[in-house]
Every structure is written in C-alpha cells, then in structure tokens.
C-alpha cells in the first residue's frame, strides 16, 4: 500500500536542497520515524539532493510515505536527473571515492543511512537513486 505520491520537488538550486530536506523531515515525522531515523533520512536526502544538483545538473525528488507488507510505515524518496549518468557504479559506491570536490560520502553515506538503496543509472541517460527508511 502506498500513499498517493506528492508532487515532485524540483532541484535546481541550493534553496531547493533545503526544501527537499524539509519535505523529507515532514514525511518522516508523519510516518512515525524516531528522531534519530528522521535525522538519518533527512541527511541522506541532503547528500543525494546535492548530488542531483551538482553531478546531475539538476532534477527532482519525489517524497512519499510507504507501508510494507507487514504494515510498517516508512518514507521513500526518489531522486531523478537527466545528467550524464554514472559510468562506473562500483567505483561511485566505493568508500571515499569522489569525482567532484566532495568527501565522497554522498552515495556511500546515503546508503549507510538508509534501509534500502537503489541506484539506476545509464551513461548519457540520467540517474535515479531511490532510498527508503522504515520506522523501527
């Protein structure tokens, strides 16, 4: 069962990254995540939104509340961009590796902070990263 998806939040500026964080915070609180888990998913969303902006050349985030088969509530965010894609996924998911000026914690950090992490990318065809955090 899935709640009706919210309008995607566009990511075209630094202010939008803040807006994504706020949307995720609201959804995570509504799904009943603990304060620590809210902080984790908001932080992960912040990293991924920045990736979308910096490496994907902008895109959008779709924030939704979800429920799994056992009735557990959670929040899921899908970040999509039409950027250049990631040529080497394994390398991008290597600890500390970065193609930009960051610490290389964006993707790996977001993966550690969430319960589910799904990366879908194609060279020249954009990137979609979907993360989910469940209430404990």
């Amino acid at each position: 069962m899935t709640a009706p998806p919210q309008e995607p939040v566009p990511i075209t500026s630094g202010d939008d990254v803040v807006r994504v964080r706020q949307a995720v915070r609201t959804a995570a609180a509504a799904a009943g995540l603990s304060l620590v888990d809210q902080t984790k998913i908001v932080t992960a969303a912040s990293e991924l939104a920045r990736n979308t902006l910096v490496y994907g050349g902008g895109g959008h985030a779709r924030v939704e509340r979800v429920t799994d088969a056992r009735g557990r509530a959670g929040v899921r965010i899908a970040f999509g961009d039409d950027g250049p894609g990631i040529p080497d996924i394994d390398l991008a998911l290597t600890e500390g590796w970065t193609s930009g000026s960051g610490l290389g914690l964006g993707l790996t950090g977001a993966r550690r902070l969430t319960d589910e992490f799904h990366l879908d990318t194609e060279v020249g065809g954009g990137t979609t990263v979907t993360v989910t955090k469940w209430a404990r």
């Binding site: 304060l35 620590v36 809210q38 902080t39 984790k40 990293e47 914690l105 790996t108 550690r112 902070l113």
Partner: peptide, 10 residues
Amino acid sequence: AVAITLVELG
C-alpha cells in the same frame, strides 16, 4: 541525533 548520524555517515 546529529552526532549518531555523522558517525553513521562516516
């Protein structure tokens, strides 16, 4: 919560 998240983030 911020400290725990930073540790998890690495």
